[in-house]
Amino acid sequence: MTQVLIDGLFLGCVYALIALGYSMVYGIIKLLNFAHGDIFMFGAMIAFTMLTAVPGLQSAGIVAVFGVLILSMFLTGGTGVLIEAVAYKPLRSAPRLSLLITAVGMSFVLEYGVKQFWGSKSITWPQWAQMGAGSIPIFDGTITISRLVLMAVSIALMVGLGFYINGTRQGRAMRAIALDQRASTLMGVDVNRTISLVFFIGSALAGAAGVMFGMYYGAIGFMMGFLLGLKAFTAAVIGGIGNMYGAMLGGLTLGLIERTTVYFCNGDDSWKDVVSFGLLILFLTLRPTGILGDRVVERM
């Protein structure tokens, strides 16, 4: 059972990182950015290319992997900003549905664009960058050191984001825009720039999740963002979409529930998606504001 918990928390961290971007974007412009899962996939792809294309990177070991992680975050962040500028900004005052359809379109553009360059076959992550070695026993389970490191990285990213949103001038401006765009403008906030920044941060986090996914599971593909994106969306809804802590809580909750389901099905993982999306429907119908919905009103 301890193993289920560890597996669940790890998966939950990946979900939470992606869900954060979903939730932040929804909080600030009320858009369900369905291309967000594909940014996650794109992050894994560019990291893979960097890891394999640069000769001699292997000798740098973990330093190289972290360098690639950070570089991938910047690149996916930039991609997010570009997507917003090209596809969403022109529709800022259009009906929400037009924006949603554009996001779905953007998702396909990313998926099939990546397919053109990286192919449709599953890609194996370089063995040396998979960080499989060494494990620590915890009660009756074990956790690999690599997993522990990755979890620490994602938790550090989330805590950092929490400080940024709640404690800095830019973070405050983001929350203000989520509440009242006009009033924020009147206080001197450059709304367009701040929205771009939200896309940058959200996409960078998704990129980080993509690299972590590759490092841990060892195989990536152009469609992997589709399901993961929907899962992250589910996580955001469970926690309370638009709410930052909700995204984290929802991610961890969903990760735990999925691994528990697999455990009770004796290792058969074919029921976990049924349970996850069943949960999504339950929440959407019975408690659309999510777990934190009515306790924390603030959206961001």
Binding site: A176, D180, A183
Partner: peptide, 11 residues
């Protein structure tokens, strides 16, 4: 100072 105050209500 806009009409209807428009303060940030949950801040």
């Amino acid at each position: 100072v806009p009409e209807g105050r428009r303060i940030f209500s949950t801040m």
